[in-house]
């Protein structure tokens, strides 16, 4: 999957789990917690959406990699590139 496709999908997921976020206002490099007061439930909703959409396993220790949209894109790209990347 092309980096731009992953980026677009991630932005859609973000604004689906948090409809109160204006898509145009998202800075992909910034920490979501700092940018949007993400709490632990928001973070879990985002991780669950990413895991389901891209069919990748996400361990709790991987959560910090989902801190920003850009770090999440790198994490998703790396997971999809792994041959055994399957469903959770």
């Amino acid at each position: 999957m092309a980096p731009d496709d992953i980026r677009t999908k991630l932005l859609t997921l973000l604004t689906t789990i948090a409809p109160d976020i204006e898509p145009a206002s998202v800075d992909p490099a910034r920490d979501l917690r700092e940018q949007f007061d993400f709490d632990s439930m928001d973070a879990l909703h985002f991780a669950a959406a990413v895991s389901e959409t891209f069919k990748i396993g996400i361990a709790e220790t991987d959560y910090p990699q989902l801190a920003s949209l850009e770090s999440a894109r790198r994490f998703v790209a790396a997971s999809l590139a792994r041959p055994q990347a399957g469903s959770t």
Binding site: S40, M41, L44, A48, S51, A59, E60
Partner: peptide
């Protein structure tokens, strides 16, 4: 919580709150 969550898919996990 760590042990409980480890085998579960993300959407079935618990949070500290």
């Amino acid at each position: 919580l760590t042990l409980h969550n480890a085998p579960l898919p993300v959407q079935a996990r618990l949070i500290e709150a």
